[in-house]
Design a protein around this nucleic acid. Structure first.
Length: 580
DNA sequence: GCCGTTTTCGGCCCGACTGTTTTCAGTCG
């Protein structure tokens, strides 16, 4: 999957063109193409091989030729030319918030600055303020932003940003001027990582709301404060933006501030094609100026001939078409989940007993939990020897009668060894009701070897679920090299389910691949990988990934009642036995 | 550079805030 790589080179072209002062629509065309390719469910390479690049919206003859050259040669002559015209560090100047192409180019041309370090030096020596259009405030802002960039070069995990935003909503919602308030932006779309936290409020006195927000005790610094918008830095160094609108504009504002950008642009174009104009203030008749909808989000969509759609799928990847045709999916909901199929206890590296974890699951309304402690190879996590595992199974036997009708499932997270063998003998695996297999070592193996290793593990008749299929940790490590397309095809064929791991730093599979898995007929499980009772809450993040992937209740195994779930796993064993 | 249920040319989403300016450009989302 080279989509990210291809998107990256198109984005670089866009940046360089922008720095050279090119037509902004041409720049936008490259950016748009990059976004399209980045979020495409299929591999750009296979689309290119099929000769269908130009059928992708936003890709015309010129960009198709450059992508084609890139895929064939790993380079682009056009990009090389641009790189010679703009020194490499100048592009980096664009990463400073507040510095756009115009100021970056001005600073580069006038002062010869090509790196962030030189920029900082020039700001400290007050050389920037000698340039036209830059004075003391801009210079200070650049210094502040440079400092923040060092602190905060990474995007926030959803699991950090969402609780922080919900805390602010709790603090603000009883303010007398506030009518409604909720998270918006990428947070409402439940994107896996978040740039800035966006919150939307409605009020007859919006200025009071932005001021109250700027005065919250968690605010460390006020970055901007106006009558309808405020932007602050919290004591945890999170940037939060609050917009306050009139109550009758709440729906259109919520629609607008939820995005994403591509969805909004497409939606506004639909409005234009109907002689209407859409902004955060409402949907207007272009000729009369009459406001047709604005109070509720669903009113906007309905007035445009569309069904309302959940924020998670607003990415302009087919949802507008589906909404027009009335074929939107009925996305899986958290209430549909009946159990968690990857949970650890203190038998290996968890912090709580099996009973405590089971009780916590019961409180969540689940009917079952698979206690999947690590297998023997994972020494660092106190993986269980076969003897210890058997002891654990006896404990579960004793526990279940007391918890009935709730069921603790006998299970393990079994390492796929470097040669593809599973880390327990088959007769022991046969005693387990749920066998989760995963990779925890040998990340440095090459792509073919790791892929082969996983495919070999699928041959084992006792394997049920492939956990965290890429091994990535968001903001920390990229995951091992693996041919997921091949893995998913093999999983579909072998009847192996694939996990969406809801742990906020994993979210693995991601939404793009989960959607691909569905297309290939792979069953999904959404698990938390909880190592403590509180971690069980991560189910909401896993469900969010599934929703972003357009998954429905029927795609998710752990929405099944226990007997049907066990029957599914049992069928695989029977089928494999007959085949043998 | 891309695109077309009026268009193969002439458009391209829309508005708020900031800073440096006396009316607006740049940036952001």
């Amino acid at each position: 999957m080279r989509n990210a790589e291809v998107a990256g080179f198109l984005d670089e072209i866009a940046d360089l063109l922008e720095l050279m002062g090119n037509n902004r629509f041409r720049v936008g065309a490259y950016r748009n193409a990059a976004t399209r390719i980045q979020s495409m469910p299929e591999s750009v390479e296979s689309v290119w091989r099929a000769g269908q690049l130009q059928e992708v919206p936003g890709i015309g003859p010129s960009i198709a030729a450059k992508v084609s050259e890139w895929l064939q040669t790993g380079g682009s002559r056009y990009l090389e030319v641009l790189r010679r015209l703009v020194p490499p560090g100048v592009r980096e100047l664009l990463t400073v918030p507040g510095l756009g192409p115009a100021k970056a180019q001005l600073i580069h041309r006038s002062l010869g600055i090509t790196t962030l370090a030189e920029l900082e030096e020039a700001a400290r020596e007050h050389r920037l303020r000698q340039l036209p259009g830059i004075r003391e405030k801009t210079e200070n802002k650049i210094l502040r932003e440079l400092e923040r960039l060092r602190d905060r070069s990474r995007r926030l995990l959803l699991g950090v940003a969402l609780p922080a935003a919900e805390e602010v909503v709790r603090l603000m919602q009883h303010h007398p001027a506030v009518r409604k308030i909720q998270p918006a932006g990428s947070l409402r779309r439940m994107q896996e990582t978040i740039g800035d936290i966006d919150i939307l409020a409605s009020s007859e006195q919006p200025a009071e709301v932005t001021q109250a927000f700027a005065r919250l005790p968690i605010v460390k610094e006020v970055l901007a404060l106006g009558p309808t918008k405020a932007s602050v830095l919290t004591t945890d160094n999170l940037q939060m933006d609050l917009r306050a609108v009139q109550p009758e504009e709440y729906g259109s504002a919520l629609q607008y501030f939820t995005g994403d950008k591509q969805h909004n642009i497409a939606l506004r174009n639909i409005a234009i094609s109907k002689g209407l104009k859409l902004s955060e203030y409402g949907l207007f008749d272009e000729s009369t100026g009459e406001r047709l909808a604005s109070e509720e989000e669903a009113d906007i969509y309905r007035a445009l001939g569309l069904e309302w759609m959940p924020p998670e799928i607003r990415t302009n990847r087919g949802e507008l078409d589906a909404a027009a045709k009335g074929t939107l999916p009925r996305l899986v909901r958290q209430e549909d989940i009946r159990g968690d199929l990857q949970v650890h206890s203190c038998w290996s590296d968890g912090t709580a007993s099996i009973e405590t974890m089971a009780e916590a699951c019961r409180v969540l309304g689940y009917g079952y939990v698979a206690i999947t402690d690590h297998s023997q190879a994972l020494g660092v996590a106190h993986g269980l020897s076969p003897e210890r595992l058997e002891q654990k199974l006896r404990e579960i036997d004793q526990l279940n009668p007391r918890l009935a009708p709730f069921r603790v499932l006998k299970a393990a997270e079994v390492d796929i060894r470097s040669n593809g063998a599973l880390d327990y003998p088959d007769d022991l695996l046969a005693q387990l009701e749920v066998v989760v297999v995963s990779i925890h070592s040998g990340f440095e193996q090459d792509r073919e070897r790791i892929t082969e290793r996983i495919l070999r593990a699928f041959q084992n008749p006792h394997a049920h679920i492939l956990a965290h299929p890429t091994g990535r940790l968001l903001n920390r490590r990229p995951g091992y090299e693996v041919d997921l397309e091949q893995v998913l095809r093999a999983a579909a064929k072998a009847g192996i389910a694939v996990e969406i791991n809801g742990s906020p730093d994993r979210l693995d599979l991601d939404d793009v691949w989960a959607r691909r898995a569905k297309e290939l007929g792979v069953k999904i499980t959404i698990n938390t990988d909880a190592h403590a009772p509180l971690n069980l809450q991560a189910m909401r993040y896993g469900v969010a990934v599934a929703r972003r992937a357009w998954l429905e209740k029927g795609d998710i195994l752990n929405t099944l009642p226990l007997d049907q779930l066990l029957a599914f796993f049992g069928r695989r064993r029977q089928r494999r036995r007959r085949a043998a």
